[in-house]
Amino acid sequence: MRNFFAFLSGGLFGAGLLVAGMVDTKKVQGWLDVFGDWDPTLAFVMGGAVSVMFFVWIFAKRRETSMLGSPMPGPFPRLVDRNLVLGSLLFGAGWGLAGLCPGPAMGSLSFNGWEGWLFLIAMGVGMALAPRAKAWLSVLDRSTLEVPPCENGTKETPATSATRGA
């Protein structure tokens, strides 16, 4: 049952992307190209999808479980951190370069030629590398920003920590 509705959701998503013209990389790049031949279509697509979801969330937030009985998603992380900003910038750059994001890349796969497959493979490689990239970013964090941790968690007097440092 879950799989049936998952297939249906994916199908609606894909059909919507096609109807909206979002499988056309020219329209997506046209939206991002604010200094060129600007194409506002994407704003209408986003507006339509967000307005439906606005009403869906009103119902969803009142529910303890989904209609099939599984827990509703959340609680969601609230922290706006560096990964969110850097990752989004990087994603946006790639999106602008080819005019494809993950949804339309899948939706147009069957009629997008070898180019679509190559993009999907490269995207998969990028996704597989992401955990490493995140680990690397957090190492960078620790060495520059974090205050050295207090050992053993015991309260130290200034005298003992000074002797240890020496």
Binding site: L8, G16, V45, G48, V52, M53, F59, S66, L68
Partner: peptide
């Protein structure tokens, strides 16, 4: 129209599958 369909897909996935 496409955007409304995308929203419907997302809504279905959220309400039915959670």
């Amino acid at each position: 129209v496409g955007g409304l369909m995308i929203g419907a897909g997302a809504g279905l996935f959220l309400l039915v599958n959670g």
